[in-house]
Nucleic acid binder design. Structure first.
Lengths: 190, 190
DNA sequence: CTGAAGTGGAACACCTCCGTTCCACTAGAG
DNA sequence: CTCTAGTGGAACGGAGGTGTTCCACTTCAG
């Protein structure tokens, strides 16, 4: 879609997209006028870039998938132990910010690339968990799809904690990492 | 509200309330016609019991708070170690079923009794966590509000896992308990 | 200055949902 | 049977969101 757009057009387009991610993350049923206001743009202008609501949603899905893919790539899931890779992924995803809310509250918004409720959607994720099962850093009793749900729910909880209470991003990220780490670690033999 | 209602009236009223919890949990912006259809009731009948949408939402809040209180009482938070009490609470809350979705996706729906994003809303909960901190069964580094967020997000993740995939309630509950337990346990001294 | 690009406001028709009214139907009590 | 409670359908006006059109304004390149 963003073919041959530069300068003002590209900037406005990006502002609308970012505003849409923020607003729709708070309320997936938000009116277009709210999104336009958040982007500090007239509703007319919004319609110029995205004629119909569905056009905007498609673009949001594309933008979200792109940010998600970049974060996934940064985590280098194939390096280190399985648990280390999972925690790296948590740290990268946490930086997605308000996109976390959108992905979590509207799992269908990313179209086919829905990362949450999928029986093992992402091959890289599943491979990472399998590696953790083998190298003993992830409890064998916890299947990959559940760990995906676990991770996303904790990321969302952490992000809500930051954005609704005035908590520090870094402190909360450490809480998330701490609890995910504890959750996946194999039990001590009792 | 449910003053002097018996027989058919009480039954219809309850059917509408349960349907509302189910439907609103899936989509907080659902139309009244959807709720009426889910309750197998005409929209006219729904309006007879709850003249305005806000009336229905108030009744849902009351019903939800009531179920929540019953579950909390059943967990006997003041008995046993802090961690044991927390896990008992998870088991009781898990039985709330679709109410979990409603509470999680629309935290304001329960009015003042919002259990999730509150800096230590519930005294019994905070007391339980404090006890766990003292008796060494809950990691001292994890504050009560975060553990509340943690628990609710895991319960919601578990319930979604059950209702969207065909997973077994009991198996998923054990996964939730397993991961919450691991998350709150104090770290081994390394 | 002139023209083009980008923008925002106002107004409109359309649709959906909401709340209301009215009427017809059914089941059960007497 | 008759009367009543409970119900559901049809229809309407109002409110809000959507998509569209038209026009006035600003900015910037030439």
């Amino acid at each position: 879609m963003p073919e041959n757009e530069r300068g003002a057009r590209a900037r406005t387009r990006q502002a609308i997209l970012s505003a849409a991610i923020d607003v729709l993350g708070q309320n997936p049923a938000a009116a277009l006028s709210e999104i336009a206001a958040a982007a500090e743009v007239g509703r007319t202008t919004l319609h110029r870039y995205f004629p119909e609501r569905s056009d905007l949603l498609r673009a949001v899905a594309a933008e979200g998938s792109s940010r998600l893919d970049r974060a996934t790539a940064s985590a280098k899931l194939s390096e280190g132990s399985g648990a280390d890779a999972l925690l790296r992924l948590c740290r990268e995803y946490f930086d997605l910010g308000s996109l976390l809310s959108l992905i979590f509250t509207d799992p269908d918004c990313l179209g086919g690339a829905t990362p949450i409720l999928d029986d093992g959607c992402d091959d890289r994720f599943t491979a990472m968990i399998d590696r953790g099962h083998r190298d003993g850093t992830i409890d064998i009793a916890l299947p990959a799809p559940w760990l995906s749900s676990l991770m996303w729910s904790q990321l969302y909880a952490g992000w809500s904690y930051v954005s609704q209470q005035g908590a520090s991003r870094h402190e909360v990220l450490e809480l998330v990492v701490r609890t995910v780490d504890g959750a996946v670690a194999p039990r001590a033999v009792s």
